[in-house]
């Protein structure tokens, strides 16, 4: 599903090249639940941006579902993000003035989908995350855990091949965080590929595979059973 070959990313700071990624070879299969860990400055954010199609590598190839995406245009990348990837963020990133339902609907609008059909899918997704009675609430009327579940429904609405979660429990207390993790595990048990970025061991330990990044390289890549 995901396969990268010798991914490099550098930034030009004055005359110098600063490397964030120094050559990453990574392969993630359909249905995996992967944690990416690493201290700040390790390059894990850059790796996530590239795998999430938010950024392009300086060198190397990135294949998503067999398609070379590392040199697509901005518009094509936007389409891939819309269709293939569902994002979940640490700070939820819901539109503050929109209802839960309208937040979940946003990706379908960018997909140019039919209104009625996407409305029923969006409601279905809110039901899946247990918020069918909160569809008209705005984010400020929801708890942190509920907001993150709206974000998960939004991530799922276009039926992406990968869910990308960047510190999804970082802003939640441990119990609510565990609820969110349980929801993600349920999704994974139903075949959803999930990649999670975290620095918490107890979160990473709930996934099937832990990849540790250090200084722009993969330091460890272990199955976790």
């Amino acid at each position: 599903m995901i396969s990268t070959e010798n991914l490099e990313k550098h930034y030009e700071v004055g005359p110098e090249k600063v490397f964030a990624l120094k050559g990453i070879d990574l392969s993630i299969k359909k249905g995996e639940f992967v944690s990416i860990m690493g201290p700040s400055g390790s390059g894990k954010t850059t790796l996530m941006n590239i795998i999430g199609c938010l950024d392009s590598p300086s060198k190397g190839d990135y294949f998503l579902n067999g398609k070379l995406v590392s040199d697509l245009s901005d518009d094509e990348l936007a389409k891939i993000r819309n269709q293939e990837i569902g994002f979940i963020f640490q700070s939820f990133n819901l539109l503050a003035r929109n209802s839960a339902l309208s937040n979940v609907l946003l990706p379908t609008k960018y997909a140019g989908l039919d209104g009625k059909k996407s409305l029923s899918i969006a409601k279905e997704m809110l039901e899946l995350v247990g918020l069918s009675d909160r569809t008209d609430h705005t984010p400020s009327e929801l708890s942190g855990g509920q907001q993150q579940r709206v974000a998960i429904a939004r991530a799922l609405v276009n039926r992406p091949s990968i869910i990308f979660a960047d510190e999804p429990t970082g802003n939640l207390d441990s119990k609510t965080g565990q609820d969110v993790m349980n929801l993600l595990k349920d999704l994974n048990n139903n075949g959803q590929t999930i990649i999670i970025i975290t620095h918490e061991d107890n979160i990473a330990n709930q996934s099937n595979r832990i990849i540790k990044i250090k200084d722009g390289l993969i330091e460890e890549d272990n199955k976790n059973v």
Binding site: D75, A78, K79, R81, N82, N93, L95, Y110
Partner: peptide, 16 residues
Amino acid sequence: TREIGLRKALGATPKI
């Protein structure tokens, strides 16, 4: 800026 970033992450093209 964050909202724009989010919209782009969710699939909004520069044109949108």
